[in-house]
Structure formats: C-alpha cells, structure tokens
C-alpha cells in the first residue's frame, strides 16, 4: 500500500487510501519517472545568451546546452537507476524509465535503452523506447496474457513510436537497444521476473546463492562465439565486436528475446548498458560490488556506486544502471 500523505505531482495533501489525487487527478498507485530532456533555463555557459527554450543549442554562439540528461538519478525507493554521460561522449544517448504500480498485483518495471551513436538523434530513440515500453509494462495485471506476451507487445509499441522519429528518410534512422525487467509479485509472496531485450544491453541476476547473466547480446561478437566460429578473446577484440545485430528503429529487426524465472532466494535484478558491463562483465564480480551496498544503503546508492566505478575506469561510453532488489521471502509492502 502506498502511504502518500501528499501528492507527488501537485503537493496537495491526500489520504493514505486515496486511489487518485483530488486536486490534480494523479493515479496515486502509480509512481514512475524517466530520462527526459528539459530546456535549461540557465544562460549559455560560454557566451551568456539566455535560453530560448526552443533549441538544444545556444542561439548566440551555437554551443550545445545541457538538456538535463547528462546525469539522471531516479529513486523510487524499491528500485532506482542512474544514467550518466560518462567522460568521452558529448551527450547522454542512454535513457531509462522506471515505474511501480500497486494495483491488484504489485508490479515493478524498468527499461534501459542505449542510443545507436552512428545514427541521427539516437537519444530521441532511446528516450521514446524507454518511456513507451514502460507504459506497456505497467499495464500488467489490468489485462490477461503472459508476461512474455506483455513484453513483446510493449516492445512492439515502442518500436512503432521510434520508427515515427525517422521521418521520411530511413537512412540513419534514430535507433537504440533495449533491455527491460518486469517483477510481478503475487499475494503469496513469490515474485516472477521477466526480462526482454533487443541488442547488447544486459540484465543480470545477482544473489548470494548464485549470480548469472540473464541475457545474451545480439551482437556480432556474441553470435560468432555462440556459433563456435571464434573464441571469446578473438571475437571481443575484433573491430566489429560490438556491432549489434538487432535494434529498435525504423530499419531494425526489433523482435526481443524474452526469459522468465522465479527466484527462490533474495537478490537484485540489474539492468545496464555496455557503458558498465564493458568494465565489469562478470556476474559474480557485479554481485560483490552491488549486494552489500543495496543491503546497507538501498538501490540508489548501489546504482550510484556502479556508475562511479565505470567512470573511474575511463567512462568511454554512456553508463546506465538500474537496480531492482527482489525479496521473494519478505512481505510485499516495501514502499
């Protein structure tokens, strides 16, 4: 049960049992947030020209304005995420969307996307795909159908939304990877985890009882290794190792792979882009870095710490990390 005493949107007081805010109509059982660009109200850092709110670039000297996405933190208490530009890229083309819903069965969902940097406006693709997929996933419980179907239909809707960004030209159409996690808790306390992905963004299950990578990359290197053509070291050192073979975009094969499992022990579902796993690919190593921090300081601290590790290691790429603790043995009200 959500124990809001004020509406998170309009700050008007609400009753703990209210389903909607009386003032603004917000659904109080739903809490969600995502990477969103905001036109900076600050004057240009280089020439001082005031922001016009119309463009990503200063209307005086042309310098790109910080649109608020260089560093994003989202803390919904029961799950949290951090997305950072890193040290090398000029903007953050990753995006994330996180949500929780206390309606019937409790649902937690998160989506992480990595814009394909060789195309036009990849950041628009990743933001749109993350938000649209999350909206689909939070429809869980309201309809029938399996989690597998829900993920596929949510990703298909997101792919359509991203395809519209291409405009009239398919060349270099905005596109991105996607990994999403859906945690559905039933009344008996068991939690079902479903993960869907397109491209090389990853999901890990981290637990003291055993940690593992849940996804397999849709990338050139992974496919060479899987097909037995190259060993891991040769494949990963090839120039096209990271070339993805599936993506969300007007010109892409966007069909996700989906896996589902029911954890028997507490653990953490970790979603991340290659900005993190390029530095720390190993599940056990990630568990060692993540689980103690989650236990002591909560998911936002763990996401912040993992992001910091990737930046310390060089921050060659945008980094996005979402941490979702799952405790099947505990009562379900954790909010």
């Amino acid at each position: 049960m959500l124990r809001a005493v004020m509406c998170p949107d309009c700050a008007e007081p609400v009753h703990a049992d209210d389903l909607f805010c009386e003032s603004c109509g917000r659904d109080l059982r739903l809490d969600r947030d995502a990477t969103r660009a905001t036109a900076s109200p600050e004057p240009c850092v280089r020439c001082g020209t005031p922001a016009d709110g119309e463009s990503d670039y200063c209307s005086g000297c042309g310098l790109r304005r910080n649109d608020g996405t260089d560093h994003v933190e989202i803390d919904l208490a029961v799950l949290a995420g951090v997305s950072d530009r890193g040290l090398v890229h000029r903007r953050n083309e990753d995006a994330m969307a996180l949500g929780k819903l206390a309606r019937g069965t409790e649902v937690i969902a998160a989506v992480v996307c990595d814009g394909v940097s060789s195309v036009r406006d990849p950041q628009l693709a990743s933001r749109s795909a993350a938000e649209t997929t999350l909206t689909g996933l939070l429809g869980a419980g309201s309809g029938s159908g399996s989690s597998d179907e829900l993920i596929r239909s949510s990703v298909a809707t997101a792919a359509k939304a991203v395809a519209t960004l291409a405009g009239s030209s398919l060349r270099d159409a905005p596109s991105c990877t996607l990994v999403c996690g859906l945690v559905e808790r039933s009344d008996d306390g068991t939690a079902a985890i479903s993960v869907g992905w397109v491209g090389d963004s990853r999901a890990y299950w981290l637990s003291d009882a055993g940690s593992r990578l849940l996804t397999h990359d849709h990338s050139w290197a992974a496919e060479q290794i899987a097909a037995g053509v190259l060993d891991e070291e040769t494949a990963m050192s090839a120039p096209m190792a990271h070339a993805i073979t599936r993506w969300i975009g007007a010109d892409g094969p966007a069909e996700p792979d989906v896996m589902t499992f029911t954890p028997q022990t507490p653990g953490v579902l970790l979603l991340c882009t290659d900005g993190l796993w390029n530095y720390v690919p190993d599940a056990d190593e990630l568990a060692g870095l993540t689980l103690p921090t989650v236990a002591e300081e909560g998911p936002i601290a763990a996401a912040t710490e993992l992001t910091g590790i990737a930046i310390e290691a060089g921050g060659r790429d945008n980094i996005t990390v979402v941490v979702i603790p799952v405790s099947p043995d505990l009562p379900r009200s954790t909010a």
Binding site: Y57, C58, C61, L63, R64, V88, R90, R91
Partner: peptide, 11 residues
Amino acid sequence: GSIDEDVLAAR
C-alpha cells in the same frame, strides 16, 4: 571550439 565541445555550426 575546444575538444569534445558540441556546437551548432548552422541551422
């Protein structure tokens, strides 16, 4: 501009 600076050269 300086390295990694992102500037709009033309609209």
